[in-house]
Amino acid sequence: MDHLKINSWRRRRFLRIAGTATACGVLTSCARENSPWRFLTTAEGRTLDAICEQIIPTDQTPGAAWAGVVNFIDRQLMGPYRRQQTAYRSGLREIDQAAVSKFGKDFAALDTGQQTALLQALEGGAKRFFSTVIAHTMQGYYGDPRHGGNRDAVSWRMLGVPVIPIRGRNRYEFPKQGAR
C-alpha cells in the first residue's frame, strides 16, 4: 500500500508541475492571440453570437447577444463545458460553411431571415450541435449573472423576478437569557 501512495504522490506532483509548464506556454501564446474570448476565436465568437441571438432575439427586451451569452458559453468552455470544446470548434465551422455554400456569406453576415431559415434546416451533426447551443444559451440567458451571462439580470427582470428578493432576517432569539 505504501509504495502505491508515494507513487501517486509523485505522479500528482509531476502532473502539477507539468500542468504549470503547459499553462505557461498557453500564457505566452494568449498574448499573441487577439481574441477577446478565452476559448473562442474572434470569428467563432461572432458566429456564436449571431446563433445565440437567433435563439433568444432582441425585441422589446434585450436578447442573448446583449445579455452576454457568448461570454457565458466561452467561460464555461474553459470549465464545466470543457468536454464540448471540439463540438463547438467543428459545429461553428460547419454552420459557417453551410452559410457560405447556401448564401455565399458567413453566418453572422446573413440577414435575420436567412439565419433563421438556415438554422431551421440544419440536419445531422450540425442539428445536434445547434440543440447543444440552445441548451447553453438558455443557461446563459436565464441563469445567474455570476456566470458571465444574463447581464444585469436582464432575463429575470423581463420575467418579473426580483433580482435580489427583499427578505428581512428571521432572527433567532434565544428562549431565555443564556439558554441554548
Binding site: I56, P57, I134, T137, Y142, W156, L159
Partner: peptide, 25 residues
C-alpha cells in the same frame, strides 16, 4: 427558477426564437 421554466413549455411552443421568448415572458 427562471431557467427551470425553459423546459416547461407545452407541445407546440417553439424551443427557440421569438415564440420561446414570448412564452417565457
Amino acid at each position: 427558477l427562471p431557467y427551470q421554466f425553459v423546459s416547461v413549455a407545452p407541445p407546440g411552443v417553439a424551443q427557440w426564437g421569438r415564440g420561446h421568448k414570448d412564452f417565457m415572458r
